[in-house]
Amino acid sequence: MTDEASTDGPPLRLALLGLGLIGGSVGLAARERLGARVVGFDPDPHVRERALALGVVDETVDDPARFGPADVALVAAPVGALAARVAEACVHVAGAVVTDVGSTKRALVEAELGDRYIGGHPLAGAEVAGVEHARADLFAGATWYLTPRPQSEGILLERLHRFVTGLGAVPTVIGHEEHDRLMAAFSHVPHVVANAMVTAATRALGDEAIPVVGPSFRDATRVAGANPPLWAGIYTANRDAVLDGLDATIDLLREARALLASGDAGALEGWQATAGEQRRALLDVGMAGGPLREVRVVVPNRPGVIADLALTLSRAGINIHDMSLSPQPDFRSGEVALWVAEGHADRARELVEQVIA
């Protein structure tokens, strides 16, 4: 794959709105890996000064209206401020594909934020916050979800896909509702459960001063109480999916209680073994792996066709590792090349042909 830094043209221009851990790490990675020119904004002038001193950005602005044109505009703001910042980027950063790093996507994708917005969410972070902890390697090998809308332009999705790959991450296209449901199951509900476990253990301990905390409790509750303002916003933004996930978890706990009350040792052993097998399968799951194969097809030049292709493949469990678009001379169609895992290539071609038929 050829990334933006390897071309003979001008350097990629990146506008960063938000200069904390994630935004700062994007800036460092873009400068180091892509040779990008990075202009940053943060509402806190001290953060802007610190980001400039740390080499996170080439320059800063004190107002998003001062950004000017860019290739990519990335918003790394608290959940509650994302919509406003994304809207500002769509208005003030001319020509850019506008994206964000928020962990909930439905409200943003379904809002009227402009046709240049494509949602994003890197599965990367740290237990520390602030631009001082930014790292250029934070996204190395990390899944980075992209949530285009049906009308998203193919050329913008391709640009964002290549940008994310250039940061060292693995872009994965997914529908916004599916994204929020999966985040509730794999991140948001576990945070709620960890909080509840800590409360239950505190009540069980009472006034005792016995040091009973072991590795199982530490592992299971590591995320309890993390960044209260951030997580309050996440719970609120993804409330419906989190409530559904909690209801399902409560049902499973009731089933576990009934199984325990039955006193059936064999059934309990089987239940424990099944959980172990399922955990191993979940940790091993992936839509990538092995050598890649190119799938090249001619597609009609109609709005949203590339986003439709990417979302269709995603629903089938097929991730696009790289993509390239080449318009035909008459601009009525274009050639798209998709690189997918070799084992998925035949199925990918079938699905692509169904979409463009």
Rank of each mutant, 00 (worst) to 15 (best):
M1R: 14
S6K: 07
D8E: 11
D8F: 14
A15H: 03
L17D: 00
G18H: 02
L21C: 07
G23E: 07
G27T: 06
V38E: 04
V38A: 11
V38Y: 09
A51D: 05
A53Y: 08
D58F: 11
D58Y: 10
D62H: 08
V75C: 04
R85Y: 07
R85P: 05
R85A: 09
V101R: 05
E112G: 06
I118N: 00
H133N: 09
D137N: 10
A140G: 14
T143I: 09
T143A: 06
L146P: 00
L146H: 00
P148Q: 09
E153W: 08
G154Q: 03
I155T: 15
E158S: 13
E158H: 08
E158G: 03
F163Q: 00
G166S: 05
P171E: 01
T172A: 13
V173D: 00
H179E: 01
F186D: 15
H191P: 12
V193W: 02
A194W: 03
M197Q: 15
A201I: 13
T202W: 11
R203S: 11
A204N: 13
E208I: 15
E208N: 14
V212W: 10
S216K: 15
F217D: 06
R222A: 03
W231H: 05
W231M: 07
G233Y: 01
Y235P: 05
Y235W: 11
R239I: 06
D240H: 07
L260A: 13
A273R: 12
A273E: 14
A281R: 14
P291R: 14
R293Q: 11
S314Q: 10
S326A: 12
F331Y: 13
W339M: 09
W339Q: 05
A341P: 06
H344W: 15
